[in-house]
Computed example of a mutant assay.
Amino acid sequence: MTEAVQALGINPDGHYVDATFGRGGHSRLILAQLSRKGRLTVFDKDPEAVRVARELAASDGRFSIRHEGFSHLGELGAASADGVLMDLGVSSPQIDDPERGFSFRHDGPLDMRMDTTRGQSVAQWLEMAEVSTLSEVIRDYGEERFAQSIAKAIDRRRQERGPLRTTGELAEVVAGAVKTREPGKDPATRTFQAFRIFINAELEELQQALEASLHVLRPGGKLVVISFHSLEDRMVKQFMARHSRAVVDRRVPFAEPAPMALAGLRRVMPSDDEVKANPRSRSAVMRVAERTEAPA
C-alpha cells in the first residue's frame, strides 16, 4: 500500500485521484502527504465505501467522493490530476462480508455486485443465462478450462432443483463439475472470479478508465495500477506499452511520428514481508507509468 502511494511521487500542493477508494487505506496515506492546497478526488461504486468516504470528506475539505465507477474518470478536467491510482478487484471487506456474495468460503446470497443499489445480481443473471453464454463467461473471464462442464452442471442444477440462490450452492455445483485443480486452490475460484468480473463489467470499465487517465493526467503525472489477476494485468501492460511508443501514420510516411503519451516506468511485485502481512497480496502486480505529453 505504501509503495503504491510512493510511486505517485506526491506533490503536496497537487491534485490526486484514488479511483478505487475501498475503505480508504491509500487515500489516507495520500492525504497525509498533501498540504492545505492539495486535493484528493476518489471514486467508488460500493455504498459502504461511499459512506466511509463521506465521513472522511465531512472533516477534510481537501477530499471529495464520487459515487460511481472509475470509468467516469474522464469527467474530471483535462490535465487536472498529478496522479491516478487504481487498485483493482474486490476489497477485503467485500470478500469478508458473506452478504455480498463474493466469496465461496462463506455461504451467503449470490450477489457479487460492487454497487448493490443498482444492476442485476449473479443469482438473477444465472436464472436466465443460456448454457453457451455461461460457458463463454467462465472461459473468457475465469480462464477456466472446464467452462463447458461447469455451464452444463449449472443448467442441470437449475432444471432439477430450481435457481441457484447462494454462494454455497454455486460452489457445490462447480466442485462437482471440475475434475482436477491445482493444489491448495478451490475448484470454484475461477468461476467466482468470472461471474464477478462479468456482472460488474470490470474489464470494460478498466479499459475506459485507462483511456481516461491520458485525458486527466498532467505531463509528469503518474499512473499507478495494482492488479490481481492476469486478465487485468495483461490489459494494463498492453495499454502502457501501446502508449509508450511513438506512433507513425503509415498514410503519411515522411511525417514526424506522434509523440508517445506515456513512459512506462516499472513493474513492482509484492515483497515477502508484504505477502506475509497480507496473503491476498501474493498475486498483486503494480505497474507505473508517467504522462509525457499534454492531453489533446
Rank of each mutant, 00 (worst) to 15 (best):
P257R: 13
R245S: 10
A255Q: 07
K276W: 08
R267F: 11
R267I: 14
H243I: 00
F239S: 01
N278L: 05
A277W: 00
A255M: 11
V225M: 07
K276G: 11
R266M: 12
L262C: 00
V252Y: 12
V252P: 00
A255P: 06
H243K: 02
V275E: 10
L231M: 08
L223Q: 04
R242C: 09
S227F: 06
E232D: 02
S283P: 07
P257D: 15
R282Y: 10
L262K: 05
Q238Y: 07
L262R: 14
A284H: 01
E256Q: 15
V224Q: 08
P253A: 04
M235S: 01
P259L: 03
M260V: 00
V268S: 08
P253F: 04
V224C: 08
V275G: 08
L265A: 04
P253R: 10
E256G: 02
R245L: 10
S271M: 03
V224R: 04
F254Q: 11
R280C: 03
R282A: 05
R282N: 04
V268Q: 08
V224I: 10
S230Y: 05
P259Y: 03
K222E: 03
Q238V: 06
K276L: 14
S281K: 13
S227K: 05
R245K: 14
F239C: 08
E274N: 04
R267L: 15
V248D: 06
R266N: 02
H243S: 08
R234T: 07
K237G: 07
N278S: 01
K222M: 12
P259M: 05
H229M: 09
L231T: 02
V268Y: 05
E232Y: 10
A263C: 12
K276C: 12
R251A: 12
D272V: 15
D273Y: 05
R251Y: 06
E256C: 04
R251G: 04
F228S: 05
R267E: 15
M269N: 12
R250S: 12
R251M: 04
H229P: 02
S227W: 04
H229Y: 03
A246N: 05
S283N: 03
R234E: 09
V248Q: 15
V224E: 03
H229E: 07
L265Q: 12
P270Q: 12
S230R: 07
P253G: 12
K276S: 13
M240Q: 09
A284Y: 06
R250D: 11
K237Y: 07
E256A: 12
L265K: 09
M235T: 07
A258W: 10
